Amino acid sequence: MARVPYLDGEDVPEAYGAVFDRNRAGATNLYGALANNPPLLDAFVDFARTCWDECGLDEPERELVALTVARQTHADYEWHQHVPLALDAGLPEADVRAVREGRYGDLGSRREALTSYAAAVATASVDDALHRALVERVDDRTVVGVTLLAAVYTGLARFLDALAVGPEESFVGWGLDGLDDGDGTELSREDLLE
């Protein structure tokens, strides 16, 4: 049970209600928790969207960063939200499994650098070697973008954990085949994309 109520667009001043209309990911529990402070909801959504749009990565790579941080921080809400988004963006199931298992080397050199770096941002363990590996594959603008995107998802994981914000429906589990949400309910790829 969340530690704050989940509010909706009708519960906030009219000036902030439009934020809920921009919610493309279906993250109603996250938005509902943030809505307890409407100016911060509005600012966070704009900031996070800008980080997402301007980080210098394509959509599958952004999803890899989000999934990597979710896995590193044990953020079931973020994992639950981003697995279907990643699959919908064309990320192969094998890549999602590789992130789940920390097998970043299976993703190719650029994606290995991105996910290894994102994992290190999430665990406060970026070193010179990881930084160099990323700089060899992306420009400085993208380094800043990846760093901030990973930091946003790390901070979001801490926010969700502190306020006990859970997924809108049963957790998809940490995998795609045979893993369940803890109550024996297995979800197929089709379930994830619904």
Results as ranks from 00 to 15, higher is better:
S125F: 07
L87G: 14
A119K: 02
A86I: 10
T123Y: 02
R110Y: 03
R97T: 15
R111L: 02
A94W: 05
H131G: 11
R103G: 05
D106K: 04
A124H: 10
V121P: 00
E112M: 03
R111W: 00
R132T: 14
D95W: 02
A113L: 04
S116N: 04
R100E: 12
R132F: 04
T123V: 09
A113S: 11
G90C: 14
A89N: 13
A122K: 04
E101A: 15
S109H: 10
E112D: 06
G102W: 00
T123Q: 07
L87S: 13
R103Q: 14
R97M: 12
L114D: 00
V99M: 11
A122I: 08
A122M: 06
V99H: 08
D106Y: 06
V99I: 15
A89G: 13
A122N: 05
E93H: 06
V99Y: 06
A124C: 12
V121Q: 03
L91E: 00
P92H: 13
R111D: 10
R100K: 15
R110P: 02
L87M: 15
A86D: 10
A94S: 15
A118T: 06
L114P: 01
E93C: 09
V99F: 08
R110K: 07
A120K: 04
A89S: 15
S109T: 14
R97H: 14
G102L: 05
A124I: 10
L87I: 14
V96E: 00
L107I: 09
Y104W: 12
R110M: 02
A120N: 08
R110D: 06
D95N: 03
A120Y: 01
R97L: 14
R111P: 02
A120C: 12
L107R: 02
H131K: 12
T123L: 11
D106F: 04
A113C: 10
R103M: 08
G105N: 12
S116Q: 04
P92F: 12
G105Q: 12
D106A: 13
R132P: 04
T123P: 07
D88L: 13
D88I: 12
L107C: 09
H131I: 01
D106W: 06
